[in-house]
Design a protein around this nucleic acid. Sequence first.
DNA 1: GTTGTTTTATACCGATAGGTTACTTACTCA
DNA 2: TGAGTAAGTAACCTATCGGTATAAAACAAC
Lengths: 201, 201
Amino acid sequence: MRKKSRSFLPNGVKLCYIKHMGRPKNFEREDVIQQAMELFWLKGYAATSLSDLTEATGLNKKSLYNEFGSKEELFNIALNAYNQSKLRQIELLTEEPFGKQNVINYLEDVAQTSSKKGCLMTLSIHESELLEKEAKLDVQKSFKGLQGLIFKNLSVDYDKKKAKSLALLMSSMIFSIASLGKLKVDKKEIKSMIKELIILL
Amino acid sequence: MRKKSRSFLPNGVKLCYIKHMGRPKNFEREDVIQQAMELFWLKGYAATSLSDLTEATGLNKKSLYNEFGSKEELFNIALNAYNQSKLRQIELLTEEPFGKQNVINYLEDVAQTSSKKGCLMTLSIHESELLEKEAKLDVQKSFKGLQGLIFKNLSVDYDKKKAKSLALLMSSMIFSIASLGKLKVDKKEIKSMIKELIILL
DNA sequence: GTTGTTTTATACCGATAGGTTACTTACTCA
DNA sequence: TGAGTAAGTAACCTATCGGTATAAAACAAC
């Protein structure tokens, strides 16, 4: 009888099986997010259609909507994943001791990893007229976060006013680099450019 | 008789009247281009629909197509007009004598005129995956032109290698500034930022 | 095997995209 | 005035947009 086999559980409590009921999904959520991210990154939000997404991910529309709710929500999730993927780079700005060397390391890494695909966050900023508040706030917050971290590092070496201006300059270099990437400017040239910039520090 | 009144013309040559035949247009081509430009500038190519364009310009679809051929062609023309409108700024880089002061003047003007709408060229770069060759080449050419002019000015004060890197840095600031504009960063901050940058020169 | 649950495939929805057709209107020319 | 021409209007075209309804398929529990 069932009662015997579950007698170790309190009344009303059921076993929670790892395997869920119903037909199993035949996709990995993280993979799908990754693929969607690549697509949005390449084409932007407006120009990426549901057909593009279903084609790239292998999922059909219904499954996409079951999993993510809407194109917009999927975009927000993808944008988030993109920002997460940049965390390693950002962490260069949290190394002890704080100071301008962290900023130099960060900028050199950004130049080194610059891509011909540009940068999803930069793209989103320019598309922001189409996006809902959530995505707008996301990019706003991401950039402010970066700017703040750079400011914190530069505050060690400069007075507040100068640190602020320099932080804006250094943080906004991600936009320059993203655009140069899209323009297929050689990575070597971008690195030389950054070399010149960090003379300021 | 006609012959008498046109006797001063050679045979087979007709008077070319300023007024053209048929119903006159009730729009100014330049105005329409301007309005289209503003719209593309605000929303980007992909997100600007024909309805948006007809609404903003007052022209109906047929007239738009008669005049400009297609959405893509209109965009190319608008992008061109945008670049033309930036010529005054660019001319700061052709003042005699050539030298870094020209670049400083240019950058300060770019900062001064930075807009919350960003920059149509920068937006187009990030949308370039959607655009046909013509628009791509246009932005490519525009940027190379700017970069070349800045290089020419900096070559007066620096050796070739340094001038090249500095030129890339200074020219790509238009992308940073455009993005900061879209992020609603205060113009005053942008100007302070540029103040810091030109210390390099 | 039956029942319940979840995912999948397919077909469909109204709305809108970019673009065109057919016709009317407004002008020049003679 | 009437013929010729260019521009404007509105209805229409097909394709695709983001999003859904329905039902078959694949699993767990029993």
